[in-house]
Simulated assay, not measured.
Amino acid sequence: MDSTALTYTIAGTLFLAVLVGWCLRWMFSRLNRANRGDPSAQGDMAARLLAAEEAQKMAEAKLVSVEVDLHKKLSQTEAELAATFETLGSVRRELEAANHALAAREGN
């Protein structure tokens, strides 16, 4: 290979390297276009993120409050149910005793 062919080969290789580098830079800038936006948009996005986190914390606190209320209502309802069953049992016993007393009177 003579010096002229070597010069053209090196020049072509360098040109291709520059062309590939330029294409890669262009693709990279297209993919990262959002990062080059104005800083106020990023500040707005950060403010919205903070507001969303605050809303999430409030929702979690409300959820805990609702769960506590529901547990209170559940335990209250269970206590009322137990009292109702106790009353029902005593009424049944009284009814059975009254039926036995009535049967004994009728039998005499």
Rank of each mutant, 00 (worst) to 15 (best):
residue 73 K to A: 06
residue 25 R to I: 02
residue 55 A to Y: 07
residue 103 A to M: 07
residue 29 S to A: 05
residue 74 L to K: 09
residue 45 M to N: 06
residue 35 N to I: 04
residue 98 A to L: 12
residue 67 E to D: 15
residue 44 D to H: 14
residue 88 L to A: 15
residue 61 A to N: 09
residue 84 T to V: 14
residue 9 T to F: 03
residue 17 A to Y: 00
residue 80 E to G: 06
residue 59 A to Q: 09
residue 94 E to C: 03
residue 71 H to I: 06
residue 89 G to Y: 05
residue 10 I to L: 03
residue 47 A to I: 03
residue 36 R to T: 05
residue 32 N to G: 01
residue 21 G to C: 01
residue 96 E to R: 13
residue 89 G to Q: 10
residue 85 F to C: 12
residue 50 L to W: 14
residue 96 E to V: 10
residue 67 E to Y: 14
residue 47 A to W: 08
residue 43 G to P: 04
residue 47 A to M: 08
residue 91 V to M: 13
residue 62 K to S: 07
residue 13 T to R: 00
residue 47 A to N: 11
residue 20 V to C: 02
residue 107 G to V: 11
residue 74 L to S: 14
residue 47 A to C: 08
residue 41 A to G: 12
residue 95 L to H: 02
residue 40 S to H: 08
residue 105 R to E: 15
residue 94 E to L: 05
residue 91 V to K: 06
residue 108 N to S: 13
residue 73 K to C: 03
residue 92 R to H: 11
residue 67 E to W: 13
residue 60 E to C: 03
residue 21 G to Y: 00
residue 32 N to S: 01
residue 55 A to K: 09
residue 79 A to R: 04
residue 75 S to P: 01
residue 27 M to P: 02
residue 48 R to I: 06
residue 59 A to V: 05
residue 59 A to D: 07
residue 66 V to N: 06
residue 42 Q to R: 14
residue 29 S to T: 06
residue 28 F to I: 01
residue 46 A to Q: 11
residue 86 E to D: 11
residue 94 E to D: 12
residue 96 E to D: 13
residue 100 H to N: 15
residue 63 L to T: 05
residue 108 N to G: 13
residue 44 D to M: 15
residue 46 A to F: 04
residue 10 I to D: 02
residue 36 R to H: 07
residue 77 T to Y: 08
residue 54 E to S: 15
residue 100 H to Y: 14
residue 72 K to Q: 13
residue 26 W to M: 04
residue 71 H to Q: 13
residue 15 F to H: 00
residue 12 G to D: 02
residue 93 R to D: 11
residue 82 A to N: 01
residue 10 I to V: 05
residue 73 K to W: 03
residue 56 Q to W: 05
residue 78 E to G: 12
residue 108 N to M: 07
residue 61 A to L: 11
residue 90 S to Q: 10
residue 68 V to R: 08
residue 32 N to F: 01
residue 97 A to V: 10
residue 83 A to S: 13
residue 20 V to W: 04
residue 75 S to T: 12
residue 30 R to A: 09
residue 47 A to Y: 10
residue 20 V to M: 02
residue 12 G to A: 05
residue 36 R to N: 07
residue 58 M to N: 13
residue 55 A to S: 13
residue 63 L to M: 10
residue 95 L to I: 02
residue 88 L to T: 12
residue 108 N to H: 10
residue 36 R to V: 03
residue 80 E to C: 07
residue 80 E to Q: 11
residue 87 T to S: 15
residue 94 E to G: 06
residue 22 W to I: 03
residue 53 E to V: 05
residue 44 D to G: 15
residue 36 R to C: 02
residue 77 T to G: 12
residue 10 I to M: 00
residue 37 G to M: 08
residue 96 E to Q: 14
residue 32 N to Q: 05
residue 78 E to S: 10
residue 88 L to H: 12
residue 61 A to E: 13
residue 83 A to W: 03
residue 36 R to D: 04
residue 72 K to D: 08
residue 92 R to V: 10
residue 61 A to S: 11
residue 100 H to F: 14
residue 17 A to L: 02
residue 40 S to P: 03
residue 46 A to K: 14
residue 43 G to T: 09
residue 106 E to L: 14
residue 66 V to K: 04
residue 13 T to M: 01
residue 29 S to P: 00
residue 48 R to Q: 11
residue 11 A to S: 01
residue 25 R to P: 00
residue 93 R to A: 07
residue 52 A to S: 15
residue 23 C to S: 04
residue 101 A to G: 07
residue 45 M to G: 04
residue 33 R to K: 14
residue 74 L to G: 05
residue 47 A to R: 14
residue 31 L to D: 07
residue 49 L to Q: 12
